[in-house]
């Protein structure tokens, strides 16, 4: 059993080498010369002030946007476009409204060419995983925001992606549901052993979810700091309040808040 984020034993999942992304004919730089290496089974959060290029970076890893300069690889293969090896969760609800929860979850598997029986078996399994056993035949319109997001998460995970990318996945949810979803994600990640990259601007969420936090500066987006969440000692903690009680939590939170203030106050 390897510890999550164990640098010596796990493979490299994603590398970025001198990645730059410019818009408007090169007059606006969203991401500026970013290099990073993300390990397999690691949970990494991109955090930073609004407009710092963290979402652009994530979308480039997803293959939905392309770097203007630099290279991105996933398990040593260059990223040339989107693919089911990198599942993506969006802030907006993306469960297809015309499909029931179950058909939504089966959709990704259908693209992968799985048989009907296999799809049906796995959709049962993933409905249970996201606590929606009784809602398989419901359309998204009759589900709450958190439930819609759980359908999207199950649909993505059912494809068994090597890397799970999440762009402010709980940003549209209210505080209580967000908290429930965070704990559910820890449970799921622990079970599925997925590599996860999450974009968030919620400092507590970043600390709770991740093994490692990459802090982006405000435009142009560069890496300000690469911070291991070492006080958790590589553990995934099922209950959030247990993490809050750990020594080291407050120090890290204070550090991140201070960095955030620094970025916001800089013109």
């Amino acid at each position: 059993m390897t510890m999550p984020g164990d640098q010596t034993l796990s493979r490299t999942a994603i590398t970025a080498s001198n990645v730059t992304r410019q818009y408007l004919g090169g007059t606006f730089t969203a991401v500026d010369d970013v290099s990073m290496e993300l390990r397999e089974n690691e949970i990494v959060c991109f955090i930073g002030p609004s407009g710092c290029g963290k979402t652009t970076m994530l979308r480039m890893i997803a293959g939905l946007e392309y770097p203007s300069m630099g290279d991105l690889t996933i398990f040593d293969k260059p990223i040339t476009g989107p693919g089911p090896d990198r599942g993506m969760i969006f802030q907006a609800y993306t469960s297809f409204p015309w499909l029931t929860a179950r058909k939504n979850i089966e959709y990704g598997m259908k693209i992968m060419g799985l048989s009907r029986q296999e799809r049906s078996r796995r959709s049962d399994e993933f409905l249970t995983l996201v606590h929606l056993d009784d809602f398989g035949d419901s359309y998204p319109a009759s589900l709450s925001g958190g439930m819609k997001q759980r359908v999207a998460i199950a649909r993505t995970l059912a494809q068994n992606p090597g890397v799970l990318l999440m762009d402010e996945p709980f940003g549209a949810l209210d505080a209580q549901v967000r908290w429930e979803m965070q704990e559910m994600m820890i449970e799921i990640i622990e079970r599925e052993n997925t590599t996860v990259v999450t974009v968030t601007h919620d400092i507590q969420e970043a600390i709770y979810l991740s093994d490692r936090i990459i802090f982006f500066t405000r435009s142009p987006g560069r890496i300000k700091a690469d911070i291991p969440v070492s006080f958790k000692e590589g553990r995934r903690i099922p209950r959030k309040e247990e993490m809050l009680a750990l020594p080291g939590y407050v120090d890290l939170e204070r550090q991140l808040f201070a960095m955030m203030r620094e970025e916001i106050q800089q013109k």
Partner: peptide
């Protein structure tokens, strides 16, 4: 049509034909 629906399908590996006809 919400662009995220299309992007979600693309990240699931859907090709152009699938995106148009199924999303």
């Amino acid at each position: 049509v919400q662009p995220e629906l299309i992007e979600a399908a693309l990240t699931m590996g859907a090709g152009r034909r699938r995106v148009v006809t199924e999303v």
